[in-house]
Amino acid sequence: MDNIKDNQGDVWEVFVQSKPGLPHKHAGSLHATDKEMALQNARDLYTRRNEGTCIWVVPLNAIVSSLPDDVGAFFDPANDKAYRHPTHYVMPEGAKHI
């Protein structure tokens, strides 16, 4: 504990909800040593212009990301499933509200 090396703290990712009802959106990242500091820093960094109603801060190392090599296996199989989209279906002429 005595030989903690001087550094800027861990990286945290910041997600800001700009209005109630909207999803939290990634705003950027910052450094902090604890969660309260991360939250306060996020507030001062990413909501200085009335941009927020709620903030999430997440330690970067808690985020699991897919990798560029996964792109094919993860996302291409969705390409040929047009039936998941409403435009795939043929509606009778004149049908409304559907």
Partner: peptide, 15 residues
């Protein structure tokens, strides 16, 4: 700022 950063890091570590 060094002692301040070290204090914050140490505090977080202890917690």
């Amino acid at each position: 700022g060094k002692w301040v950063r070290e204090a914050a890091l140490t505090y977080a570590h202890k917690e």
